[in-house]
Amino acid sequence: MRISRTPSTAAAPPDWVTGSVWIEEVAAPEAPSRLKVDTVHFAPGARTMWHRHPFGQLLVITAGTGLVQRRGGPVETVGAGQSVHIGAGEWHWHGAAPSSVMTHLAIQEVAEDGTGAERGAPVTDAEYHTRPSAV
């Protein structure tokens, strides 16, 4: 595994997010490891597209207040110190609450061919503004 000694921050690809999102690589896989860790910073209201990971994903919220939704489930509110496990192949999205920034560690295993996630449709405003439930 390659450990980033001086993480660099880059804007998230615009076809993967709505709003302003920045990613810092913490650890990238070097064979035989397939573990990838990023710190992801979301501006208020920013969020990912619907997406899924072949082996699932663990989100560890380190700052702010965020929202997470699994396909077919309620929008959940998450805050610093909480973690969320997303199952393998489970469609989901996550991002900051409308009036708060949110930062999380994103931990996932990538496939042997380097595939990390499959992108789906954008999260609609109606989906994003659904009344969240507490985790």
Rank of each mutant, 00 (worst) to 15 (best):
M1D: 06
M1Q: 06
M1T: 10
R2H: 14
I3K: 11
S4Y: 10
S4H: 13
P7H: 08
P7E: 09
S8E: 15
S8M: 10
S8H: 13
T9K: 14
T9I: 14
A11C: 05
P13N: 12
P14M: 01
P14Q: 07
T18L: 12
G19D: 03
G19S: 05
G19R: 02
G19M: 02
S20H: 09
V21H: 04
W22D: 06
W22V: 01
W22S: 12
I23M: 09
I23Q: 06
E24Q: 15
E24R: 15
E24G: 04
E25C: 00
V26M: 13
V26L: 14
A27R: 14
A27S: 14
A28H: 09
A28W: 07
A31I: 01
P32G: 14
R34P: 00
L35G: 03
K36A: 14
K36F: 11
K36V: 07
V37S: 03
D38A: 09
V40Q: 03
V40W: 00
V40I: 15
H41S: 13
H41C: 00
F42I: 03
P44M: 02
P44S: 04
G45M: 01
A46S: 15
R47G: 09
R47L: 07
R47T: 07
W50N: 10
W50V: 08
H51R: 11
H51A: 02
H51I: 00
R52A: 06
R52D: 05
H53P: 03
P54Y: 07
F55H: 15
Q57G: 02
Q57A: 05
L58M: 05
L58Y: 00
L58T: 10
L58I: 07
V60C: 05
T62L: 04
A63E: 14
G64T: 08
G64P: 07
G64M: 08
T65A: 07
G66L: 05
G66N: 06
G66C: 09
V68F: 12
V68K: 07
R70E: 13
R71Y: 12
R71F: 12
R71V: 06
R71N: 11
R71I: 04
G72N: 12
G73W: 01
P74E: 13
E76V: 11
V78N: 03
V78E: 02
G79H: 12
A80E: 12
A80V: 05
G81H: 09
Q82R: 11
S83E: 03
S83I: 00
I86W: 02
I86A: 04
I86N: 06
I86R: 04
G87E: 15
A88T: 06
W91H: 10
W93H: 09
G95A: 10
A97W: 02
A97M: 04
P98N: 10
P98D: 08
S100C: 11
V101W: 04
T103L: 02
T103Y: 01
A111C: 07
E112I: 09
E112G: 08
D113M: 08
T115F: 05
G116N: 09
A117W: 03
A117N: 10
G120E: 08
A121Y: 10
A121M: 14
A121D: 15
T124I: 11
T124H: 12
T124G: 12
D125M: 04
D125S: 12
A126E: 15
A126P: 00
E127P: 06
E127D: 15
E127G: 08
E127M: 09
E127A: 13
E127F: 07
Y128P: 05
H129V: 01
H129M: 14
T130I: 02
T130M: 11
T130L: 14
R131Y: 00
R131C: 02
V135K: 09
